[in-house]
Amino acid sequence: MIPYVISNVGMTLDGKLATIENDSRISGENDLKRVHEIRKDVDAIMVGIGTVLKDDPRLTVHKINASPKDNPLRIVVDSNLKVPLNARVLNKDAKTVIATTTPISDEKEEKIRKLKEMGIMVLQAGVQKVDLRKIMNEIYKMGINKILLEGGGTLNWGMFKENLINEVRVYIAPKVFGGANSPTYVDGKGFKNVEECTKLELKNYYPLDDGIVLEYRVIGSFK
């Protein structure tokens, strides 16, 4: 068994998450509140290390009325254990799990020791890349039933590729950023053909701020 996963993103009409100079001002006030309502409703928030290094997020519930007990578990997928020890995602606001790979160097062992001393749980699965399905199994055993996946593009690709996403919620802003190297919702290698790709069924949509929210069910998902 593995948790139910909601992938949420705010992006431009051309699928970009930020400009070429990393200006990511896409969502309006009401969309930010929508995201934090989802955070409050799940057991964990999951991101990749790229998001941590770029944005240094707290990954807590703070845009709406909430108490510290409303903060879900934070999961960071970090194959090479690059997470800075002073990253906000490691603070005491909520519990944190770092998912990394199995091979251990002396440097990595020392980093894991320091993380554990800070009260951070470290899960290891996979050799060069984190084995996402194994990690999800371990997370489920911890009593985590629902996860909000907040990217970035590399982790989103891995989760779609392994069919670990049940639901997609997208806020589309009426903006076009362009840029071949601008970050997008899903990066990675990509599917080879239409037969392989993830297919979605539209369940709901509504206007919000100056954009629109689309909610999809992943066809053929495990739950």
Rank of each mutant, 00 (worst) to 15 (best):
221 S>F: 05
50 G>D: 07
213 V>S: 03
93 D>H: 11
216 Y>E: 12
24 S>E: 06
15 G>A: 07
173 A>N: 04
127 V>Y: 12
222 F>K: 13
129 K>G: 11
167 E>Q: 10
93 D>W: 03
214 L>E: 01
31 D>R: 00
131 D>M: 14
80 N>G: 06
31 D>W: 01
89 V>Y: 14
125 A>D: 15
163 N>E: 14
134 K>R: 13
16 K>D: 04
205 Y>S: 06
192 K>W: 02
127 V>A: 12
4 Y>C: 08
114 K>Q: 13
121 M>F: 14
2 I>A: 02
43 D>A: 09
150 E>F: 02
106 D>R: 04
59 L>N: 08
12 T>I: 02
200 L>V: 04
78 D>F: 13
183 P>M: 12
91 N>I: 07
126 G>S: 08
57 P>W: 15
110 E>G: 03
223 K>L: 09
202 L>A: 09
16 K>L: 04
61 V>N: 11
171 Y>P: 15
164 L>F: 11
128 Q>Y: 11
144 I>L: 00
37 E>L: 13
163 N>M: 05
194 V>K: 07
38 I>L: 15
45 I>P: 03
155 L>R: 02
53 L>Q: 07
70 D>Q: 05
219 I>Q: 09
215 E>W: 00
138 E>T: 11
102 T>R: 06
19 T>H: 02
3 P>G: 08
164 L>A: 11
163 N>L: 02
104 I>F: 15
97 V>E: 12
36 H>A: 02
198 T>R: 03
153 G>S: 01
174 P>S: 14
46 M>C: 10
130 V>C: 08
218 V>M: 05
176 V>D: 06
10 G>S: 09
65 N>F: 06
215 E>S: 01
2 I>G: 13
222 F>R: 07
107 E>I: 08
68 P>N: 01
60 T>N: 13
9 V>G: 02
151 G>V: 01
150 E>P: 00
31 D>C: 01
157 W>Q: 05
187 D>C: 06
203 K>A: 10
66 A>T: 05
189 K>D: 09
21 E>N: 13
219 I>E: 05
87 A>G: 11
141 K>D: 08
18 A>L: 02
167 E>M: 12
164 L>M: 12
59 L>Y: 06
114 K>S: 11
18 A>F: 00
177 F>V: 08
217 R>L: 12
48 G>K: 03
11 M>H: 04
22 N>E: 09
187 D>T: 14
121 M>K: 13
215 E>Y: 08
180 A>L: 08
122 V>Q: 06
108 K>N: 03
14 D>I: 09
177 F>K: 10
223 K>H: 15
144 I>F: 07
88 R>H: 14
74 R>N: 10
60 T>H: 00
165 I>R: 01
116 K>M: 09
82 K>D: 14
105 S>P: 15
174 P>T: 11
219 I>S: 01
188 G>S: 07
